[in-house]
Structure formats: structure tokens, C-alpha cells
Amino acid sequence: MTASESMRACFTRVTSELLDTSERLVLVLADIGIGSFREIGALERHPRRVLNVGIREQLMVGVASGFAIEGFRPILHSYAPFLVERPFEQLKLDLGHQGLGAILVSTGASYDAASEGRTHQCPGDVALLATLPGWKIEVPGHAEEVEACLRKAATGSDCVYIRLAERQNEQSFPGQSRLVPIRHGGEGAPLVVAVGPMMQPVLDATAGVDLSIAYLSEVRPFDAEGCRAMAGSQVVLVEPYLEGTTASEVAKALLNRPHRLLSIGVPLAERHRYGTPAEHDRALGLDAQGLRERILPFVGADR
């Protein structure tokens, strides 16, 4: 692990290492990413366990299902919209409904490929997958967390989604599936839950404000127990994808406690913007300044 390693480079390196050590793993791609695995030698070393099906995402999932029937642990990778949204029925029926598992690793996040436009932007992936029972959804905020997620998922047999992003936090929390306390506020201080790569902007936005901050990278299953333990009566949920995706989980966790919840994420809107991820963050209020403008009034810290 090098400090400058991107999440995607980490994914390629670790997956290649795992393919070398586990005969059970197969990698099924639909063109996206095959160049990296050819370059690293995985395709040459494992020609029967590294497969490019061409630009056929539904087939990618169906083929992974067949591999899983034969006892393999498939890893699939593509841009989030092509991995989750396009073959969604295959994910639902060919994996979960068949009682089979796979590891899905997406790239592109909500709008890392901002300049590619709406076709490559995917703020709805987590919300969509969260409609399927039994999926583990990982939103790492650092490449070290990606490595831990992958290595753990490789030994399992369940359905796992790992959402890679360009932006990384300065601090990493590999192997943490529960809420991690980052900052303790005073008694009764509101709790801010920062998901994955949103931690850094949340820390920047809330500097000097009396808040408790917790970090979360595994959003499904949701750490309800941790939420109950850390939350008071005010919770701010900051997610890097569709606004409100985990709000119902927080509400369930705090069912018997009067509370206020502010959900921050990518607003539900049909967007026709290109540019850079930073420009989208600014426009959607998801940079440090935008977060501060929403969080402080909610917790009464603007007075």
C-alpha cells in the first residue's frame, strides 16, 4: 500500500493478488477494467478465472451466477451505472434469489466521471441495491479500507457491493463495519454520521462546532446499535450518494426516541452538467462550505 494509491489501483492490485492465492476466485468483466488486469498479468496467469465477456453487463452477472453455482467466488467490476443499474434484474434474480453470492466493485461513484455526463454518473446505486435483502454495502473512504473490504469479502459467500471513489479521507479505518467515533462533542451534542469519502469535508465543515462525529463505511447492514449508543436527539447523516438513502435505517434505530434527522446527500434531480466533481460538490452543497451552511443552522450553531 502506498500513500498515493487510488482506490481503483488498490482494487486491481489486491484482486490480482487474491486471484494468485485463491483458486476459488474468478474475475468477470464487461470490458471496463480488462486493460488493467492484462497489464498486471492476471489475465495471462489465470486465463480460465479472468474473463472478459465484452460489453455485455447482463451477461457479466449471469456468467458470475453460473460460476457461483459451480462453487466459485466471482468478482465483478464496472462503472456503477453499468454494474448496478443496467443489470439490476440479474443482480436480483441471478444472485440473491438463487441463494448465490458475488463481490461487485464499482468505480465512478456519484459523479467522479462528472465530465462524462449523466450516463456515467450514479448517485442512485446504493439506494437501489438497498432494496435487495442480504447485500453488504461498503462505501470505503480510503484505499486501505478497500483492501480490507476485498480481502474479507473474498473469504465469504454473500453478496457484497464495494463502491470505489476518487476522493479519499486523510485517515483510514480498515476493517471497521460499525460506526467509528471520530470526535466526541459535549453532553447532548448532535451526532454527525459521515459516510465514506464524506468524512473529510464533514471534518472541514464542522471545525470548531460542538458536535459528535462518527464515521461509517459499511452502510448495509446498518449499525443500528452503534447509532443508538452514539446519537442523542439530533442526527445529521451525510452520504456521498442519493440524499436520504440511509435515513430509514437511522429512523428505525431511533424508533423509540424523539429525534430530528437531517439527511444530506446528492439531491434527487435529473442533472445535465459536466465539469469536475468539485464543481458538482459545490453546486449540490456537498463541499465543506455547503455542508457547513446546512449543518450549522440545523444544530442551532449558527446563532
Binding site: 474468478v26 468477470v28 480460465r48 474473463l51 447482463q58 451477461l59 452477472v61 449471469g62 456468467v63 458470475a64 451466477s65 453460473g66 460460476f67 457461483a68 453455482i69 459451480e70 462453487g71 466459485f72 440479474q90 441471478d94
Partner: peptide, 11 residues
């Protein structure tokens, strides 16, 4: 059929 292709590749 896509699953059958995967099963065949798995074998």
C-alpha cells in the same frame, strides 16, 4: 442461458 454459460465456464 447466461447462467448456463457461466456454469460451463465454471466446469
Amino acid at each position: 442461458l447466461p447462467i448456463a454459460v457461466g456454469v460451463t465456464l465454471g466446469l
